[in-house]
Amino acid sequence: TGIVNVSSSLNVRSSASTSSKVIGSLSGNTKVTIVGEEGAFYKIEYKGSHGYVAKEYI
């Protein structure tokens, strides 16, 4: 489990790349469930599926 550490919002992406499609966003202080790691990204549970967020903001 981690907490989103941004002042505005954090993009949730379809894969572990900054060039991948943005599938949603999370507000600061949102609790997320981390299910894996891939490079500079965490794989998280997101809306019944999975998404990826940059580690530096969790």
Rank of each mutant, 00 (worst) to 15 (best):
T1L: 13
T1Y: 09
T1C: 14
T1A: 09
I3D: 04
I3Y: 14
I3M: 10
I3Q: 07
I3K: 08
V4L: 06
N5G: 06
N5D: 06
N5Q: 09
V6K: 13
V6P: 08
V6L: 09
V6D: 06
V6M: 09
V6Q: 09
S7T: 13
S7G: 12
S7N: 11
S8C: 14
S9F: 13
S9I: 11
N11A: 15
N11K: 15
N11M: 14
V12T: 01
R13V: 09
R13K: 07
R13G: 04
S14K: 13
S15W: 08
S15H: 14
A16V: 06
A16M: 04
A16F: 04
A16R: 03
S17A: 08
S17R: 07
S17P: 01
S17F: 07
T18N: 15
T18Y: 15
T18F: 15
T18K: 12
S19P: 06
S19T: 13
S19Q: 13
S19E: 13
S20F: 07
S20Q: 02
S20D: 04
S20A: 15
K21C: 10
K21I: 11
K21H: 11
V22N: 05
I23A: 02
G24P: 01
G24L: 04
S25C: 12
L26P: 00
L26E: 01
L26V: 09
L26N: 01
L26T: 02
S27W: 12
S27I: 11
G28D: 08
G28I: 11
G28E: 09
N29I: 06
N29A: 10
N29D: 09
T30R: 05
T30I: 08
K31D: 05
K31N: 09
V32K: 00
V32S: 01
V32E: 00
V32I: 09
V32C: 05
T33D: 06
I34H: 00
I34T: 02
I34F: 03
V35T: 07
V35A: 05
G36F: 04
G36M: 05
G36C: 07
G36T: 05
G36L: 05
G36D: 08
G36E: 06
E37L: 07
E37P: 03
E38K: 07
E38L: 07
E38M: 08
G39S: 05
G39C: 06
A40P: 09
A40W: 08
A40V: 09
A40C: 12
A40E: 14
A40G: 11
F41S: 03
F41N: 02
F41H: 04
Y42T: 02
Y42I: 04
K43A: 06
K43F: 05
K43E: 06
E45V: 15
E45K: 10
E45C: 12
E45H: 08
E45G: 04
E45A: 10
K47I: 07
K47V: 06
G48R: 06
G48M: 07
S49L: 10
S49I: 12
S49F: 10
S49A: 14
S49M: 14
H50C: 08
H50M: 09
G51Y: 04
G51K: 01
G51Q: 02
Y52H: 01
V53T: 02
V53G: 01
A54I: 12
A54G: 09
A54L: 15
A54Q: 14
A54W: 10
A54S: 11
K55P: 00
K55M: 07
E56A: 13
E56Y: 10
E56S: 08
Y57G: 12
Y57I: 04
Y57R: 06
Y57T: 05
